[in-house]
Each structure stands twice: as C-alpha cells, then as structure tokens.
Amino acid sequence: MRVALITESFLPTVSGVTTSVCQVLDHLARSGHEAMVIAPTGAPAAYAGFPVHSVPAARYRQFPVGMPSPQVHRLLADFAPDVLHAASPFLLGAQGIAAANRLDIPSVAVFQTDVAGYARRNGLGPAAAAAWRFVRWVHEGADLTLVPSTASMLDLRRIGLRRLDRWTRGVDLAGYHPNRRTDPAVAALRQRLAPNGELVVGYVGRMAPEKQVERFRALRGVPGIRLALVGDGPSVPAIERALAGMPVSWLGRLDGAALGRAYAAFDLFLHAGTEETFGQTLQEAHAAGLPVVAPRAGGPIDLVAHGENGLLFAPDDESDLRRCVTLLTRDPALRLRMGEAGRRSVLGRSWQNVCDQLLGHYETVIDDRAAVRATVAVPLSMQR
C-alpha cells in the first residue's frame, strides 16, 4: 500500500498529532508499506525511511501552520498514493483532501483538534460557529473521518457530518508501566519531587491556555501533596502566577525514558482542560498504573470510568476538582485499585493494534472508491 500523510504538525514540534503521525509511519515501515509525508517547513527531510516534503508555514503560538502550496497537488500526483491520510486537517490538510479528490485518491481525515472549542474559549463568539462550518467543509471532502471520542462524534454529527468512524490512539505499554516504580532513577526523581514523602500530583502536557493548568490552583492548601508539571509552552508565566506559593516542581518537556520515569514517580494524574478531543496523556497515566482525575467533558469521558479507574469532576467546578483529588490523597487503597483498573483498561490499545485498525480503515476507503469507479465504468462499457 502507498500512503501519503499530510499533517498540520510534525517534528520537531511535539504534539499529539505529531506523536500519532510518527507512530503510523513507524507501523507502515514495519509492515512493508510505502509512504511519504507533507508537513510544515522545519520538518526533517525523512522519517522512518520515508521522504518528508516541507511546505511554507506561518507561526502561531509557537506552532508552524502549514499554508496552501502548489507543491501539494504535484507531490500527490507524482507519488500516486493508494490513500491520503490527513492528520488533524486545517489549511494544509484541506488543500490535500481537495487535491486528492481531483486526482481520484481516496482520503481518510483524522479529527484531532477542537478548533471550534478554541474559538469559543477565547471569547470569539460568532467565530465558534464559523469554525464549525470550516470543520464541516474540510471533512466533507474526505471519504472517511476518524473520530477519537464519543463527544467528538456527537459534535461532528451535530454539524451534519455522516461518514464517520471511531479510531482511538495507541499507548506505549512498555515505556509506561507500573513496574518502573522500582527503577533507582525513579526513586531518585521521586525523592527530589517529594523530599518529605508527600504525594505527587502530576501533569503531562503542553502549557497552553486550552489545557487550563492554572486550575491546579484549586489544590492550594491541600495537605501532604506536591505538584509536578511536565511540559512547556506559552502559558508558563500565567501558570507560575496562578500557582505562586504552592509546592510545584517544573520538569520541563520530557520524552522517551525520561517521560516514563516521570509518570512512574507520580501518585495520581490530574488533567484540568475541558477541550480534549481524546486525552493521550490520560491513557499514558493509566498505562503507568495511575488513577486519573479529569473533567467530565470531551475525550476523558471515554477514558475515565468514574469510580473505577479515576474520578471525573464537574467541568466548571474547581471545588469539585479539589474534592476529587483530596479523596484520592486520603485513600491509598483506592489509588491502588484505580491505578490497577486503569492499567487493565488500556491493555488492548498498543500502537500495533491501533495502527492495524487504521490500515483496515485505509482498505475500506480504497475498496469503496474502487466500487464507485466500477459502477461508473460499467455503463460506459455497455455503451460501446
């Protein structure tokens, strides 16, 4: 199979979209498929043995945003893929889907970013409705849109999209594992984070307005805890102000083994943002055997079974956030039970399994497009 991936985010930018695209490319390479990537400028020239083609981009909040380019049509025409994978399509992805349709290439679009939610949170009013119209316009051009959560599925059905299916995200079940807590490096990190044996409330993710990390201020005064924050981004100064005087360890951006050690050093995981279409870090925390506290909104609704592998708080109620965290800090048996349940809940979500499912979606749209071609060709042949 020949797969063209067009992505709004790629290395060196680290994001959920980048992680998913890299995992897909790794899987395609292991499986013997061919691929090429179209990404915003600044990307490496190759990944997993596949060529990466850069197109011009503008900067927005530290992220490169790929701009429409005449290269896109030419690159797709020259590569002649069996299918186009558009990762979190925006301007660049929309152009890729349109070019694929002109070239009679089936396409799969992956919905991953709540653009309309960002517009709403920033008080843009009518822009939220306009954003949803844009989302509909982009995704209507794709043969299939893959959706990560029940909440996202409802949102997209509400705006009239119908060619939808579920596709979740994979998780590294070896890199994030409860057994890592016995690692001496984890013990050393934990001693640094909680020198007096405090419970470590951890967070991993981008420090950006939509993540709402400032809401951790609700934990001010909760006895016996320390906060450990992993990530960077434009909201760091605002978060520092919101959490001033609280016991906080800033670990910066981590990946690979260092990130696995950070999860292993936490006692529980807290996510405060209400605009997650999925919530990759939540299932990483579950893989590490941690109970998760998250809002009852968006992707976390599918990942956190309230009272089983974590707790869901009322999205706009910081006192409920505090109540949930406090409950877990006071009950070690409950933390252990929920952490074990969290680990069990992700055991079927290895990247191998998830990417195999994606290949099945590729095959579906390829077969469906071939069937359409056949129904058009038959009457023509009968006329000869």
Score class of each variant (00 low, 15 high):
189 L>G: 04
189 L>S: 03
190 R>F: 00
190 R>S: 08
191 Q>Y: 05
191 Q>S: 14
191 Q>E: 15
192 R>I: 02
192 R>E: 06
192 R>D: 02
193 L>C: 05
193 L>V: 06
194 A>T: 01
195 P>F: 03
195 P>A: 07
196 N>Q: 15
196 N>P: 13
197 G>S: 12
197 G>L: 10
198 E>P: 03
199 L>S: 11
199 L>Y: 06
199 L>N: 09
199 L>R: 15
199 L>E: 07
200 V>S: 02
200 V>A: 00
200 V>R: 06
201 V>I: 04
202 G>S: 04
202 G>E: 03
202 G>I: 01
203 Y>N: 07
203 Y>P: 00
204 V>N: 09
205 G>F: 07
205 G>Y: 03
206 R>I: 01
206 R>K: 13
206 R>Q: 14
206 R>G: 09
206 R>L: 10
207 M>I: 13
207 M>N: 12
208 A>L: 09
208 A>C: 13
210 E>Q: 12
210 E>W: 06
211 K>A: 03
211 K>E: 10
212 Q>P: 12
213 V>S: 09
213 V>A: 11
213 V>F: 07
213 V>L: 15
214 E>Y: 02
214 E>S: 06
214 E>N: 02
215 R>W: 02
215 R>H: 10
216 F>S: 05
217 R>F: 05
217 R>S: 15
217 R>N: 08
218 A>Y: 10
218 A>R: 11
219 L>P: 00
219 L>Y: 04
219 L>G: 08
220 R>Y: 02
222 V>K: 14
223 P>K: 06
223 P>H: 09
223 P>W: 02
223 P>S: 05
224 G>H: 09
224 G>W: 04
224 G>M: 05
225 I>S: 06
225 I>W: 04
225 I>Y: 07
225 I>M: 09
226 R>K: 06
226 R>W: 01
226 R>D: 04
227 L>A: 06
227 L>R: 03
227 L>P: 03
227 L>T: 01
228 A>K: 00
229 L>Q: 05
229 L>C: 00
230 V>A: 11
231 G>S: 09
231 G>E: 09
231 G>Y: 12
231 G>R: 08
232 D>Y: 10
233 G>Y: 08
233 G>L: 10
234 P>E: 14
235 S>A: 15
235 S>E: 15
236 V>I: 14
236 V>W: 12
237 P>A: 02
237 P>M: 00
238 A>G: 08
239 I>D: 06
239 I>L: 15
239 I>T: 13
239 I>Q: 04
239 I>S: 11
239 I>R: 14
240 E>R: 15
240 E>Y: 07
240 E>Q: 15
241 R>Q: 14
241 R>D: 04
241 R>V: 10
241 R>H: 11
241 R>L: 14
241 R>E: 14
242 A>D: 13
242 A>C: 13
242 A>G: 13
242 A>E: 12
242 A>H: 12
242 A>T: 11
242 A>W: 13
243 L>F: 04
243 L>T: 05
243 L>Y: 12
